[in-house]
Nucleic acid binder design. Sequence first.
DNA 1: TGATCCATGTCAGCAAGCTGTCATGTCGGC
DNA 2: GCCGACATGACAGCTTGCTGACATGGATCA
Lengths: 221, 221
Amino acid sequence: MRVLLVEDDRRIASDVSRGLRASGYVVEVSSDGEDAWFRGDTEDYGVVILDLGLPGMDGLAVLKRWRANGRTTPVLILTARGSWAERVDGIDAGADDYLPKPFQMEELLARLRSVVRRSSGHASSVMTAGDIRLDERQMKVTLRGAHVTLSPLEYRLVAHLLRNKGRVVSQQELDENVYGQPEEHDSNVLEVLVGRVRKKLGPDLIETRRGFGYLVPEMPA
Amino acid sequence: MRVLLVEDDRRIASDVSRGLRASGYVVEVSSDGEDAWFRGDTEDYGVVILDLGLPGMDGLAVLKRWRANGRTTPVLILTARGSWAERVDGIDAGADDYLPKPFQMEELLARLRSVVRRSSGHASSVMTAGDIRLDERQMKVTLRGAHVTLSPLEYRLVAHLLRNKGRVVSQQELDENVYGQPEEHDSNVLEVLVGRVRKKLGPDLIETRRGFGYLVPEMPA
DNA sequence: TGATCCATGTCAGCAAGCTGTCATGTCGGC
DNA sequence: GCCGACATGACAGCTTGCTGACATGGATCA
């Protein structure tokens, strides 16, 4: 992992970067605010370790400019011991964590792990098929970019079929996942439901496998 | 937002919870490890504040068991001053941040904001959606720059939805985070509350996902 | 103490639209 | 062509969520 270490004290910089390298990080050092800002804005680092007292541009300002530009690279700031006001400011400026000086190398490494772990923990919730796009987080379905309103049952049907794209899903399985009851409906509710969905999302999304169930194909017809 | 405060010192617990409530959190206090573990494992909190020295079950053990069960609720641990080994352990056990005792209420609040913000992927204590701007630090809400006065419940509703911008939030989740009770209201308080907020902040801020809950969309309609 | 304000809960009525049913039409395989 | 599986349109009943009006109760202040 690539780390940008922004620190103007040469001795600290060298100690820390040695420790980081020993732990398998690729380290780049910057000792000046302007330079740090430029690099952080143009390059892609896994983490930034940022000292607040800097020549050129203040560390907080650097951080704020990154965040204002939408950079989400995790940032760990180094603050003077005991100055909790500084920490509050740093955190509110968008820092992911701070470490009061002086610190043990071991502690720095632990916080680095934690910061990185956190920032890499998101999974995508979007599924697509043909022109259809379903965002599970927003429970939003679009057809060629246009928002389509689905009822709760319709939504669950589509979501379950999309989650199982490329596989034939039996009526019983759909019953269980849409209605939550394994009991067989004596009527044709499911077929009606499929019909309503097809009317809203187009006839090609859901294919019928006579005698087996329904299927959202891997490739649109 | 719902907070679980795990602290066995009654005085600290009462001071802190008072401060938290004053800042708009819904606070539940637990003073014993077993109890804390059980609650954290069964209930859904926005954050947990965890003191390490506990009767019953040790704080670290509680945290580890949560993580082992896949709970990702952000946890802020309180440690004795200067014991950095404890911090390292805590962070590697899955804590999201730590705060050395003694601390200022203000700092606790800032770190809480930061931990919560991170875990929901936001970058600043100011959250926006369309023309609406909410500053968690000041508990201030503005609409097109003009200050809007919200009641406590209204504020909590908006804050929770904004913290989860782009995600559908169920009525039950709102209940828990606004009222602090998982119990179902038999009445329509929440709908009334939403209505009141919409009247103050405009009808487009909060979208309804019939049958599922409410949502503040990523992009204004 | 009484007057008043405000936050909050309750309720009833309304509109939208969701959902199951049924009658009837269509399709595919044998 | 026949049969069963599936599709479709219409409709009635019901749910859901929204809204305005009102009740309650706590806080504040004269």
